[in-house]
């Protein structure tokens, strides 16, 4: 599903963020990317939805090298990749329902399908009750659920979550991870970047550990820290 070959990434200002990355992630896998802040987790995610292009190497998503994708093709790639952020990025002046439906509207989805798909996504994340509320009225966990619903409303085969629990308390973080696990079991490839140790250790998934732009460990049923 996802393959990174000989990736390196230098930002225009000369900062090197990734070195010599080779990685294969299969269909419907659940993968944690862990490491201290500045390790390159966000940069790696950005390569996958073409928010950044690698300096060298190829990024293959669903058999296509998206590093060489034409600019006009990028929107169609994005419709197949859902992205979830630490800061949610919800539009404050739209309700939860409108925020989720927005992702369908702007891709030109037929009106008749918008309502049905939006309701399905909200139901999946247990947010039907809060559909008419504005982001400011929601708890952190609820905001993250709304953000996940928006990422999923197009039924993308891949979901990327960058520090999804960064602003949440441990109990809520755990709930969000349960939700992501449920989504993964519904045939979605899942990548979660985090430095939340207890969650990673609790979930027992594949763990890719990064440090200073390099992969230092890649382990099935792994834990956060490597000295096992």
């Amino acid at each position: 599903m996802i393959e990174l070959r000989n990736i390196s990434k230098n930002y225009p200002n000369g900062v090197g963020a990734l070195y010599d990355i080779n990685l294969h992630i299969g269909k419907e896998e659940f993968v944690f990317i862990v490491g201290p802040s500045g390790a390159g987790k966000t940069t790696l995610m950005k390569l996958l939805y073409r928010d950044e292009v690698p300096t060298t190497g190829s990024v293959i998503v669903d058999k296509i090298n998206i590093a060489g994708l034409e600019q006009q093709q990028v929107p169609y790639l994005r419709r197949n990749i859902g992205v979830v952020f630490q800061d949610y990025k919800l539009l404050p002046r739209k309700t939860v329902y409108e925020n989720v439906a927005f992702a369908l509207q702007v891709t030109g989805c037929p009106r008749s399908q918008i309502r049905r798909k939006t309701m399905q996504a909200l139901e999946l994340v247990s947010m039907l009750r809060s559909a008419k509320q504005f982001p400011a009225q929601l708890s952190g966990g609820e905001k993250q659920r709304a953000c996940i619903a928006r990422a999923l409303v197009n039924n993308p085969p891949i979901l990327l979550a960058d520090e999804p629990t960064g602003n949440l308390d441990p109990a809520t973080s755990w709930e969000i991870l349960q939700l992501l696990d449920k989504i993964n079991k519904r045939n979605t490839t899942l990548l979660v970047a985090t430095h939340n140790k207890s969650i990673v250790d609790g979930m027992k998934k594949r763990v890719i550990a990064m440090e200073s732009g390099r992969i230092i460990r890649d382990q099935q049923l792994g834990v956060y820290s490597g000295n096992l």
Partner: peptide, 16 residues
């Protein structure tokens, strides 16, 4: 922000 989210969820430039 609105525009950046539109791009994130795959809106084409002409649509934006």
């Amino acid at each position: 922000t609105e525009i950046s989210i539109m791009r994130l969820v795959g809106a084409t430039n002409s649509f934006i």
